[in-house]
């Protein structure tokens, strides 16, 4: 996890997208909750943009 966070920060630094940090923080907190509470993530049937 630590190396993942390091890589993510490096990505943000290179792309100069520091404003993404609070969004990522919220995501990791709430996203983690969503994942924990959801049985399966069903991909939308439409074009795989995700």
């Amino acid at each position: 996890m630590l190396s993942f966070l390091r890589e993510l920060f490096e990505f943000i630094r290179v792309r100069k997208k520091f404003w993404l940090i609070p969004i990522f923080l919220v995501f990791f907190i709430f996203g983690g909750l969503i994942v924990l509470t959801e049985g399966s993530a069903v991909a939308p049937f439409i074009y795989t943009l995700f």
Binding site: G31, I34, V42, A43, P44, F50
Partner: peptide, 16 residues
């Protein structure tokens, strides 16, 4: 709400 769980669960950690 459909896309983010997939990313948080898997795709963001694609390297691993």
């Amino acid at each position: 709400s459909k896309a983010i769980p997939i990313w948080m669960k898997e795709k963001l950690f694609q390297k691993y």
